[in-house]
């Protein structure tokens, strides 16, 4: 074991980690609002909105992320008509894929708020949108917070899949350094530790919130 290889290449690896963080953050920022819209579509009473939303969610959820990434990597340039760069293609694929998972979390969050809450809101003279905004959504958000954070951790873990299309995120950077230095043991162990620390912090936070939710 020769751990100095990590110290030598730390700047390059950290650039990769920064790329992973950036990718995950952008994906969450874009996927969440998209998922809110689809979730509302999912519980809509209009079937021409409800069915397409359901088909979208189920299609995404029954395909592996890696395949979705391949799909988008192939399709996005064809549809747009010119190459858009690896980062954009991968990011679009991730956003579409994870928005389906966020949709299900948001949907169950909204549905976890009892129907009588809506009735109570309406009967005190609030409009439907006021009821949603002031009564349902605050409770829904609190209920789904732990699941949302867990999903953010999964998004971060999912960014490793950008490796397959050669995007230089953390795992890909680690891979490139092993190709040069031929020190897979140290480097992959280091990568595993870094991922563990980040994800463990995230999932511990989710667990704390879950506990607090039970108490209140």
């Amino acid at each position: 074991m020769d751990w100095s290889v990590i110290a030598t290449h730390l700047p390059f690896l950290m650039k990769g980690l920064w790329m992973s963080v950036k990718l995950a953050t952008l994906v969450v920022i874009f996927a969440f609002p998209l998922a809110c819209l689809i979730a509302v579509g999912r519980i809509s009473s209009r079937s021409w909105i409800r069915y397409p939303s359901a088909i979208f969610v189920n299609t995404m959820r029954s395909n592996p992320l890696i395949l979705i990434v391949f799909w988008f990597f192939f399709l996005v340039p064809i549809i747009i008509g010119r190459p858009v760069g690896d980062f954009a293609s991968v990011m679009i694929g991730f956003i579409v894929f994870f928005s389906a998972y966020f949709t299900e979390i948001i949907r169950s969050g909204i549905q976890s708020v009892g129907r009588n809450q809506i009735q109570a809101g309406l009967s005190t003279g609030l409009t439907y949108f006021q009821t949603m905004r002031m009564i349902v959504l605050p409770q829904a958000l609190r209920n789904m917070m732990p699941a949302l954070i867990t999903e953010c951790v999964i998004v971060f873990q999912g960014t490793t899949i950008a490796y397959v299309v050669g995007l230089r995120e953390f795992l890909n950077s680690t891979f490139l350094i092993t190709e040069i230095t031929l020190r897979p043991a140290e480097l992959y162990t280091f990568a595993a530790i870094v991922y563990f620390v980040v994800c463990f912090a995230g999932s511990s936070l989710a667990r704390q919130m879950e506990k607090r939710k039970v108490r209140t």
Partner: peptide, 16 residues
């Protein structure tokens, strides 16, 4: 096992 991405685990099993 839950807090390390599966792809990284695969690489660790395969290379390390």
């Amino acid at each position: 096992f839950r807090n390390i991405p599966l792809l990284v685990q695969l690489f660790v099993w395969f290379f390390v």
